[in-house]
Amino acid sequence: MENEAGALSRVAGLFSARGYNIESLSVAPTEDPTLSRMTLVTTGSDEVIEQVTKQLNKLIEVVKVIDLIDGNHIERELMLVKIKAVGADRDEIKRLVDIFRGSIIDVTDRSYTIELTGTSSKLDAFLDNIESSAVLETVRTGASGIGRGDWVLRV
């Protein structure tokens, strides 16, 4: 969409006004600074998704809408998570971070701050392996998506 003030609130407003849900939304300028790319994750029946797509296309500042689910695509989300890490847990958590190919980016004697990238369900899976009382703080970006292969979204 056009990288203009207000464009984001039009999208958000559309979703709340029409009762569509936003699971996550991430947006930033692209290689062309006049354009922003937004990845929005939503759920709904085929009819609802069809309406969401059409309504988004109607917004004047939206240049193009694609449903990544329609094709082969890659999806990544970044999570920063602070986890209580004392005693024997410290090794255990470090092993888990390695298994999930994350990295520990900050350490105190009582906690680790971990950076983890992957699909949203991989991040969920990581958290499922940690006792919930040990999770001190999580920050997630929401998914970003891109098509696979040589296919490129052009406007």
Binding site: E47, E50, Q51, K54, Q55, N57, K58
Partner: peptide, 8 residues
């Protein structure tokens, strides 16, 4: 004229 009016 409005695609979103179709099959709504």
């Amino acid at each position: 004229i409005d695609p979103s009016s179709i099959s709504k």
